[in-house]
Design a protein around this nucleic acid. Structure first.
Lengths: 214, 214
DNA sequence: CCTACCGATCGGTAGG
DNA sequence: CCTACCGATCGGTAGG
């Protein structure tokens, strides 16, 4: 009896890490499916099959399809945070846009991440979409960060005070999203980072303040 | 027998115009559904129900779901052509971008058209999507038109010969697509036409050549 | 244009 | 009362 209990406990412990592994596999497959076919085009039955688990097994880890979506979005956010908190402190002015150029470069090496964002963004413009609020808060976060960086650039005298911050922020986000769409649609035949860098260069030509030579 | 045939023919003739009317209703409903839920999220059964026709009735007019999609895309192209061939001749230089600003203004009054384009664009980045080729050729058409207009502007001396045509074309398309996405995601809380006009103004500040005063 | 269907699949839940 | 699932099946809908 004691032995049986012990065995059971050991079995549970093993199953626990096996469960974590299964969760990871499910997340990876769901991520790929949402990237390719969107949330609406994703079926939990197919995700389960590809992850090598039964449908009921999947629903044990993620009780609803929507819970799976949210887990995928959290996973994406975690990856992005790991990528950017390496930089640490808040960047100011043009350094922020250089960071965006770097992001474009990184994204070139992870088309699935780009695909997932583009597909989900379009779907989630619908206010009834389960990721609608996520999309809006994502825009707000990204925008306010760039906003602050540009304002700091004006404060430290490297950015012209005439720069219309809100409009430039919206245009910059638009350029990034639009270029990603073209990059995907053309199967990578445009240079995402180079095109975005060209946009940034044009911004700098118009709004940068170069300190007078000493 | 002759009478039956005659009746049948008359009935067919009547059905023909009724059929055209049904086609129109189906197209309108399919357009709205694809705009809201994409092609993959659209069910022909639901389109049929909303159009007040049976599923088999719909499949009489459009034999496959894909045929319905193509009809909707053709319908969209027809609307756009009607809108722009009013202008007639090819526009040169900055006039082309003013045309794009006007298009943004028009699109503000037809959010469904914008929604349909954004949703379908994201879906159709997938090379296996039935609208993939349509999307690519749409980009090619729009790009080559703007390309030609900018080249003409350089030729007639109103646009700087240093303007990198290909990059500016890609950025301009990106700005329009990206702004449409934001416009939808925010439920119209940004001014699509004004933001795009701000982008065009910045382009002009950088690349316009003003003739010397006489 | 209709009724009457097809094989397959949807998201989700049952008991074990 | 827990975990990590299982095979089977619910009512309903998909495109054709």
């Amino acid at each position: 009896m004691a032995e049986a209990r012990q065995f059971r406990r050991t079995s549970t412990d093993r199953a626990s890490s096996a469960g974590d592994e299964a969760r990871g596999r499910i997340l990876a497959v769901a991520f790929a499916s949402i990237a390719e076919k969107g949330y609406r085009g994703t079926s939990i039955a197919q995700v389960a099959a590809e992850a090598g688990i039964s449908q009921s097994g999947l629903l044990h880890h993620f009780p609803t399809k929507q819970a799976l979506l949210i887990a995928v979005l959290d996973y994406r956010s975690r990856l992005d945070r790991e990528l950017f908190q390496a930089g640490g402190a808040t960047v100011t002015g043009w350094a922020a846009l250089e960071g965006w150029v770097e992001l474009a470069r990184i994204n070139t090496r992870r088309p699935q991440m780009v695909q997932m964002f583009v597909t989900l963004s379009a779907e989630a413009t619908d206010p009834d979409h389960p990721a609608h609020e996520w999309l809006r808060s994502h825009y707000r976060m990204v925008s306010s960060e760039l906003s602050k960086a540009l304002a700091a650039g004006i404060a430290d005298g490297t950015v012209s005070p005439d720069l219309p911050i809100d409009t430039v922020v919206r245009l910059t986000v638009a350029v990034m999203d639009g270029l990603q769409l073209q990059w995907l649609a053309t199967g990578g035949r445009i240079d995402l980072a180079a095109e975005f860098a060209a946009y940034v260069r044009q911004l700098e030509q118009t709004w940068a303040i170069t300190p007078p030579p000493a």
